[in-house]
Design a protein around this nucleic acid. Structure first.
Lengths: 226, 226
DNA sequence: CAAATTGTAAACTTTTTGTGAACTTTTTAA
DNA sequence: TTAAAAAGTTCACAAAAAGTTTACAATTTG
């Protein structure tokens, strides 16, 4: 397993230790913070995969830390709240909290929730640059393109071309520009190359070939007229 | 049954003897410790499947022993507490105690609880980081991979490669990336190495070779199209 | 309608991948 | 410790897939 670092912010020494023990047993690397201030410093200093934040902490409370974290990165956050502690779950969700753990909790539950959040965050990352237009979906990370949820079988160039078009809807590109942007600025070759690939793409798009439309005298563009 | 060794730590000689008799009747091997200090020594010296810890012991009490144990391994612990003895169940759970037995107890109950804890701990161990996809199951802890519940015979690299793919379904990796991630960033060698291992893996996957699919012009990925 | 532009099929070229065999390194067994 | 076996790596070449060019047909536009 590659290193997964988790920051545990709680003012109770005992609580931190217990959590640390269980997380280390799962193979995670654990850092501790005594209060909100220390937590923010550590977050700024290095990168974590997840943070466990106690709500009640001296100096800076958990909500404030969470808000700060959300300003910058998309770092998963799990809040620790004492049962009965006045807290507004809704408030937390608005801050983008990924989950809650209510004290006292069983180690099993804690580990399960952490794993769930990490799994979800990984999926998010995977779908990061995914483009969705109408019935077309393109996932660059997995090099997959879907039309009406059916996967298309595209060659690398076809994929790149479609992805480029989809990222730049409505923008018209000349053949030269397309060769530069999709094939690379150092490509020396025939303009007809573009035509050929457009033709093949259209074929694979079937009844959605209209997505890639010819702008007479100029070039091509991706059109999404709904 | 393979040897299951249980350590019984209690200062009362009679208590130890009673427990020993019942556990031996169940086929377990039993070791005894008179106090916390002796318990820690024995734990350090050899390996047990479970420990029964009396809370009240001279020299070092049960909680302390438990804490020490938790620092290192993931050894199941059952605490023995006298009824009415002030003890904090919550505290115990935070320390990772697996179960409690309150004295006086029936031998039946004790054996039942021990079996339950052992079963759970075995499952935990087995399922740690296990990946299950369709008919493929990979247990990194035991370095085993199963296809339709039949174990595959994989070489270490083949195993690592398959495990990596399975953990990152659908994500495409170039040969360079695979060499970095599976072989290590400091591997200097031929890209074809990946091809060869992929080929061998596919061979062993038989009709499920489609799991590892070639993404032309990019690399390989694990595919699970159901 | 004629000029300009685009579409298309097929031939051709290049790139990428699959594969077996030789070779090296590591592990296991004696 | 050494010999044998297993695993891992490299390499060369065949096969497959993709990309490019070309020539010509079809279409658009004024």
């Amino acid at each position: 397993m590659q290193d997964i670092r988790i920051l545990v912010a709680d003012d109770e020494e005992k609580m931190r230790r217990v959590i640390r023990i269980y997380l280390q047993k799962e193979g995670y690397r654990v850092e501790e913070a005594r209060d909100g201030k220390e937590a923010l410093e550590k977050i700024k200093a290095s990168s974590f995969s997840l943070i466990l934040l106690d709500v009640m902490m001296p100096a800076i409370d958990g909500w404030t830390v969470c808000r700060e974290v959300r300003k910058n990165a998309s770092l998963p956050v799990i809040m620790l709240t004492a049962r009965g502690e006045e807290y507004d779950k809704l408030f937390g969700f608005e801050l983008g909290v990924d989950d809650y753990i209510t004290k006292p909790f069983s180690p099993r539950e804690m580990v399960a929730r952490i794993k769930a959040v990490l799994r979800r965050s990984k999926e998010d990352k995977r779908n990061e640059n995914t483009v969705k237009i109408d019935v077309l979906e393109i996932r660059p990370m997995s090099k997959q393109a879907f039309l009406e949820n059916k996967e298309l079988t595209l060659t690398p160039k076809e994929f790149e071309l479609l992805y480029f078009f989809a990222r730049n809807q409505e923008h018209v590109y000349s053949r030269e520009q397309l060769l530069n942007k999709v094939w690379g600025y150092d490509f020396i070759g025939d303009l007809r190359t573009v035509d050929t690939h457009v033709k093949q793409l259209r074929e694979k798009l079937g009844k959605y070939k209209k997505y890639i439309c010819t702008v007479w005298g100029t070039g091509y563009k991706f059109r999404n007229d709904q």
